[in-house]
């Protein structure tokens, strides 16, 4: 995330760029870093010397970003490599670098519309896991409601959010009505939202037949509650851009729904 937000180049640690950063610490005074820096932070500094890298290591930081295009010329690289630190360099100044990280973070978590997508790079992604219990009609629809809230917060187009929400709901209802339990994986990457619902249950003997509008195996009880008019899978197909169904009788069904952003 940080590399993307700062349009930074990597000096060291290209294979560790997926490391989680918990805090940002911006300072040129290494005594401050050692006194106040919290573990798993990344240091933003204009001090392009090995002292900065050593201090970051002592404070258990994950790495250092050098601002204004600075790059350390001493043995920093080797020290960083030996101690598993990431070193980045950005052309931005300290103020701009801090602003960019903050706005990218806000864009991602509280939904300044689409900003995290625009500023992001291929490292930008989100994935969440949920569980659905079969026959749990009391909580039916809650997983898709959560999925909707997450996508809405990120700031996606309401029409897209609605398509994902409806498709997820139909998938969720199928699990509640017909399966024992299921795991739901939501993943958001640039250009694509994917929802995978993998259930354990009786499976679908004839997927083609199940895809036909009006075909239903719902019981009278389910129908009395307003479910099971045989519109579920066709409605998912209508609302998603791509739908894959894999099913094995007496084992379970996996729905893979993809939505292009």
């Amino acid at each position: 995330m940080i590399k993307g937000a700062l349009e930074a180049s990597v000096i060291e640690g290209v294979d560790r760029l997926d490391t989680e950063v918990e805090h940002i610490y911006a300072s040129d005074l290494m005594s401050d870093v050692l006194a106040f820096g919290r573990p798993n932070s990344i240091l933003l500094t204009g001090l392009a010397t090995q002292q900065a890298v050593i201090s970051a290591h002592m404070a258990e930081f994950v790495g250092v970003v050098f601002i204004r295009g600075k790059k350390p010329k001493d043995g920093s690289e080797k020290f960083a490599k030996d101690n598993q630190l990431i070193l980045l360099s950005t052309k931005l100044d300290m103020y701009e670098a801090c602003v960019r990280i903050d706005s990218t973070r806000r864009g991602r978590y509280s939904g300044a519309k689409g900003s995290w997508m625009r500023q992001g790079t291929e490292e930008m992604s989100l994935s969440r896991e949920f569980f659905i219990q079969g026959s749990d009609f009391a909580n039916a629809g809650m997983v898709s409601t959560k999925v909707k809230s997450i996508l809405k917060k990120i700031g996606f187009d309401p029409k897209l959010v609605r398509r994902v929400a409806i498709s997820t709901y139909e998938g969720e209802m199928n699990v509640v009505m017909h399966a024992k339990r299921a795991k739901v994986d939501l993943s958001v990457t640039p250009g694509l939202i994917q929802v995978v619902i993998e259930d354990e249950g009786k499976g679908i003997p004839d997927v083609e037949l199940a895809m036909q509008e009006g075909f239903t195996t719902a019981t009278e009880e389910m129908r009395a509650m307003g479910f099971g008019s045989g519109m579920g899978l066709p409605n998912i197909k209508k609302n998603s851009d791509e739908l894959d169904i894999r099913s094995e009788v007496e084992k379970g069904t996996t729905l893979q729904m993809r939505f292009f952003i």
């Binding site: 009609f137 009391a138 039916a140 629809g141 809650m142 898709s144 409601t145 909707k148 309401p158 029409k159 609605r162 929400a165 409806i166 709901y169 139909e170 209802m173 509650m225 307003g226 479910f227 099971g228 008019s229 045989g230 519109m231 579920g232 066709p234 409605n235 209508k238």
Partner: peptide, 28 residues
């Protein structure tokens, strides 16, 4: 399931269903 497939954003939904599962459906 009919609502999920046919109702549009902003519609008023008239029903005699009162089970709480109408809430996620209405929201979605």
């Amino acid at each position: 399931s009919d609502v999920m497939a046919g109702a549009k954003s902003g519609n008023l939904w008239l029903t005699i269903q009162t089970h709480k599962s109408i809430v996620p459906a209405a929201n979605l």
